[in-house]
Computed example of a mutant assay.
Amino acid sequence: MRRTPARRPTIKDIARRAGVSESAVSFALNGRPGVSEATRTRVRRVAEQLGWQPSAAARALSGEGAATVGLVLARPARTLGGESFFLRLVSGVQEVLSAHGLGLLFQVVEDIGAECAVHRRWWAEHRVDGVLVVDPRAADPRPALLDELGLPAVIIGAPDDAGRPLPDHGAISTLWADDTGAMASVVGHLHALGHRRITHIAGLPELAHTRRRMAGLRAEAERRGLPEVRSVTTDYSDTEGAEATRRVLAAPRPPTALVYDNDVMAVAGLAVAAERGVPVPGGLSIVAWDDSVLCRSTHPALTALARDTAAFGRHAAEELVALLAGGPARRVEDVTPQLVVRDSTAPPGS
C-alpha cells in the first residue's frame, strides 16, 4: 500500500483552515489588495502555523525567482578526485538548470544512510524543490523515502539488477542506459579478436549498474562458451584498479583482456602492464567504460565505450524540470554507449 507523502502545506490547506477562499489566501500572502487587514492577518497566522512556504520552483520556472535542485554523491570523497564522469554529468545538468533559473546544491557523503539523512534535512528545511539521484542500488531505500516526502526526483540509472525501471513512485522519473547491451558489445569485440580469458575490473559491488555489468558479462560469456571470464570489484579508484590489475596478471593463467568500469582504472591498469613488461595490445588488450580525454591521450589510445555524458546530464535535468512544472513521472531509456575501437585491443599474442 502506498503511503501518503509527508507533503508540504498548500494554499488550499490554508484556505480550509482559515475559512476563506483560495483566491483570498493568494491575495493575502502576496500582499495584493482585495482582502481586509483582519483576513490578511488571519491567513498569514494560519500559514505560519502550518509551516507554509511559497514554492520557489514554481516562481523560478515562471521567471519570478530562483529555486534549487539537490544532488548527493554517496561515495568516499577520495575516489572522486580523478573521476571525470561526474564532472561531465554535472556540467550537462547545470546547463539546463541555469537556463531555467534553477540552482544546484551539491554534497558528498560517505554512505547511503547519510544521503537519506541529507534528503530528509533538505526537505524539512525547504532547501531543495527536487533532487537528482545517482548510483541506484539493489534494495535501494531512496525511492520510498523520496515518495514519502513527496520530493520530486529523477533517478539516473536503472535501479534494479535486471535493468527494469522503478515501479510507480509518484513524482519520481528514471533515466537509464543499457549497461547489459553495452557489456555485450565489449565481449563480442574481444571474442571476435580471439580472446577467451577476460577479466572485468568492476566498480563498487553494491551499485545496481555494477551488478548489471557483471551479470551481463557472465551471461555473454556463457552464451559464447567462455569459462575463463570473471569480475573483480573495486572502489573505482586508480589505487584499487592498479592493485586488482597486479593480482589478476600475477595469476597462473592471466587474462588476455581486461575491461575496466571507468577511465581512471583503465589508465592505471595500462601503467601496471608497462610496469610488468606486458605489451598492450600484443600481450594484453584493455577496454575502458566511459570514454574520456584520458582514454584518448594514452599510448596506446584506449578502446572505450563512449557516450555524451554531458547530454545524459542534460536529459536528467530536463526530466526534473518537467516534474517541477507539474508534468508526469516518466521512464526514459537514453542512448546505449557505443564501443570506439582504438589501439589498445588486438588479437592475443599479436
Rank of each mutant, 00 (worst) to 15 (best):
V96A: 01
L102V: 10
E83C: 11
T39A: 15
E115H: 00
S98V: 13
N30R: 15
G103A: 10
Q94L: 12
L104I: 11
A77V: 12
E115S: 01
L50G: 04
A57Q: 12
D111M: 11
P76N: 15
L105A: 13
R75A: 15
P54I: 00
V109F: 01
V69A: 04
R75T: 02
A67Y: 05
N30I: 10
S55A: 01
P33M: 06
G51M: 14
V108W: 11
R88G: 03
T68A: 13
S84C: 08
G103K: 06
G101D: 08
F85W: 13
V43M: 01
A117M: 07
A66E: 13
S23Y: 00
V72L: 10
I112Q: 12
L97D: 05
E37W: 10
A74C: 14
T39W: 08
E110R: 15
L50C: 10
R88L: 08
R44M: 03
V108P: 14
Q94M: 10
A28Y: 02
L102C: 11
S36D: 09
A57R: 07
A47V: 14
A28M: 04
A114K: 00
R40Y: 09
R32M: 06
R59W: 04
L102G: 03
A38L: 14
A58P: 00
L104N: 07
F106C: 14
L80P: 04
R75W: 12
V118S: 04
D111Y: 00
S36K: 13
E83K: 09
A74T: 11
L87M: 07
T68V: 11
L50F: 02
V43Q: 04
G70M: 03
S23E: 04
C116W: 00
P54S: 08
D111E: 10
L71Y: 03
V72K: 00
E64Y: 11
G101Q: 05
R75H: 15
A77S: 15
F27T: 05
A60S: 09
L97V: 05
A66W: 10
A28G: 07
T79K: 02
G81D: 13
